[in-house]
Nucleic acid binder design. Sequence first.
DNA 1: CGTTAGCACTCGACTTCAATGAGTGCTAAG
DNA 2: CTTAGCACTCATTGAAGTCGAGTGCTAACG
Lengths: 344, 344
Amino acid sequence: MLTERQKLILNAIVDDYIRSAEPVGSRSISKRGDVGYSPATIRNEMADLEELGFLEQPHTSAGRIPSHKGYRYYVDHLEPIHEALPAELRTLRAFFAEKLNATEQVIQHAAMILSHMTNYTSILLGPEVFHTCLRHFQLLPLNETTAVAIIVTSTGQVESKTVAIPPGISVSEMEKVVNLLNSKLVNVPLYKLKTRLYRELGQEMQRHLTNFEEIMGILDNIFVDDETDQRVYLSGATNMLRQPEFKDVEKVKDILDLLEETPTLMKMMAATQNGSGIQVRIGTENDHEAFANCSLITATYSLDGTALGTIGILGPTRMEYARVMNLLGILSKDLTTMLSKHYK
Amino acid sequence: MLTERQKLILNAIVDDYIRSAEPVGSRSISKRGDVGYSPATIRNEMADLEELGFLEQPHTSAGRIPSHKGYRYYVDHLEPIHEALPAELRTLRAFFAEKLNATEQVIQHAAMILSHMTNYTSILLGPEVFHTCLRHFQLLPLNETTAVAIIVTSTGQVESKTVAIPPGISVSEMEKVVNLLNSKLVNVPLYKLKTRLYRELGQEMQRHLTNFEEIMGILDNIFVDDETDQRVYLSGATNMLRQPEFKDVEKVKDILDLLEETPTLMKMMAATQNGSGIQVRIGTENDHEAFANCSLITATYSLDGTALGTIGILGPTRMEYARVMNLLGILSKDLTTMLSKHYK
DNA sequence: CGTTAGCACTCGACTTCAATGAGTGCTAAG
DNA sequence: CTTAGCACTCATTGAAGTCGAGTGCTAACG
C-alpha cells in the first residue's frame, strides 16, 4: 500500500514527533541521517501521506503530525525489539529480586516501577478472581453480633468481609457450616461458589441445620461477587501532567477524572483481556472521549495458562510505543513465570 | 487587638475572596449589605489591615487578598455553625444508612463522599493499628513452600501476608505455634506483638519446638510493623485542578506528586493526631513547600476514646473553612459513634 | 473628629500592529 | 524522478497603546 520511501518518511516523522512533541517539517527530516532526500522530495511525499490520511497539519504553515491512522501504521509495522536495553532490563529484574510478600504487593510495586521507568501512567488490573479457586474459608466471631469472614484463594489472595450474625445462631452451628463448606467447596472457582452452594449443599445443610434460612442469608452476603474482588492499581497518574500536550489543565482534567473512576477503568482494562499478547489502542480506539488524545498499551499476565490480570500504560498518543511495548512484554512474561514459580 | 469594624471588614474580604478567588476591592465590600461604609472608609481600614499583616496586595492597583495571618484570624474567630445545612446533612447521613461491610470500605467510601461534597481533596488515614489488638492469628499452607498468615484485629481489620516456609517444618509443628500464639497473644496491642513474642514466648517456644530459629524467622517476618498497616485513602485528588489558583499546571504538579507519595502523606496526617478536635493548617503551616498555597483541615475519629484515624480535607488556602470544618465535625462524630456501635 | 466625595495616579489585562521565520506548494530546471 | 528556487501562509513574538479597576491622598461635610 505504501512505497518503501513513504514508509521510511512516515516512520521518521512519527519518531521525531514522539521525541519533540512538535510538528515536524520536511527540512528536519531531511537533515536526519536515515532519510537521504531533499526537503522538497520529502514535502511531496508528505503531501501524499496527508492525502492518504496518515498525517495531519495543525495549520497551513506548520509541519506535519501523525494522525491516529499514522500511529496505527507505525505501531503495526514496528519491528519487535528482542534485546532490551541492558539498563532497563536490570531495573526491571532488580524488582523481582526483592523479597516478595503477597501477590497484591508485587503487583502494586510493579505498577510503581513501570510508571517511574516510563514517565507515563501505569494501570494494573489485579489477579482475576474469576479464574481462582477457594482454598480455605473461615468465620471468626468478633463479638456477639458480628464476625469476619475470610476467603483465601488459590493464588494466596485474602478477601475478608465483616458480617452481622443474627441472634440465636450458636457457635457450634457456625462451626458445622464452616467445616461443611471447607470439605465441599475447596478448589471450586470463586465465581461458581454461589451456584454450588445452592445446588449441591442446599439440601444437606437444610438437614443438618436448624437456622438454615438465616445462615444461607449470611453466606449469600459473603459470596456476593462484588466488583472489588478485582482491584485496579494506578501509579503515576500525575505523569500525565508532564506531557507537553497537556500543559493546559482543561485537557488533563477529564483524563484524571476518568482515572479516578475505578469501575470504568476496570471495564476498560477487562475489555483488553479478550485478545492476547500486547495490544495497543490509539486515541479514539479507547471508547472514551477523554482518552481521545491518549494511547493505552496493555499486556496480560497469567498463571497456568489462564489470564490473571492486565498491565497497562497510558500516555499521550505521541507515546514511545517501541520502548513501552518492549517493557510490557518483558514484565508480563516475568510476572507470569514468577507467579507460576511461586504457586508451584 | 482589632476594632470591631476591622474584624467586620476582614471577615467580608476573606468571605468574598473565598467565593471569587479574585482580589477584592473596597467598592465591592461597600456594596455588600453587611458593611455599611463607603469605599473610602473601607480603603482606609484596608490600608491599616495591610500594615498589620492581615491583608496583601498582589500589585499596587489591585484589590486585597488575605495573607496567611488573615486566614488564621478568620479561622480562629469563626463562630461555630451548629446546625448543618439540611441538604448536606442528609447526604452525609444517607451514607451511613447504607449497609456497611468492612471498616475499610466505610472509610474509603467516606473519603469519596467528602471529596464529592466539598470539591476538594480528601485524605483519610485508616484505622490506626497501633491502638488495635490481636484478635486471632492463623497460618494457612498454600503449598509445600508457602503459606498465608492472617491477622485479625479487634476492629475487624484483616491483614494478610504470604510467607515462605523453609523445608523441614512439619504441619503439626506449625499448628503448635499457631495455638500457642492464639492462647498467649490475643488482646495484645499490635505494636507490642514483637516484643511480647521475644520476651515472653521465646523460652517456652524454644522448649517445645525443634525448628525454633526458622519459625522465629517466619514470625518475625509476619509481625514486622510495616507502614502499610496504616492505610491512606485519597479521593478527589484531581479536584485540585478545579481551583482557579491552580490553572497553571506547574503549580499543581508538585502538589499531586506529593499526594502520590503515601509515606509523606501518612506522616503529615499522623502529625495531626496529637491535638484533638478540628485542626486547621494554613499554607506554610504544613511543613511542605508544595503545600504553601494549600490548607489542610483535619479531624480525628476514635473508638472507645482512643484515636483510630484522621480525616483531612486539602484545598487551596482560599478554602470554605466554615463549611468544611462543620462537615468534618459531623463526619468524625458520626464515624466515631458508628464504629463504637458496630464493635459493641 | 470620623466619614465621605473627588481626583490624580498606578499598573495589570487586553488589543492592535508589524516584524519574524518556519514551513509549505508550485514551478521549472537538472 | 529529483531538487533548487520562490512566493505565500500563518502562528508567534514583542512593542505600543488603550482601558479600567483600584488605590492613596486631600479636602469638604456633618
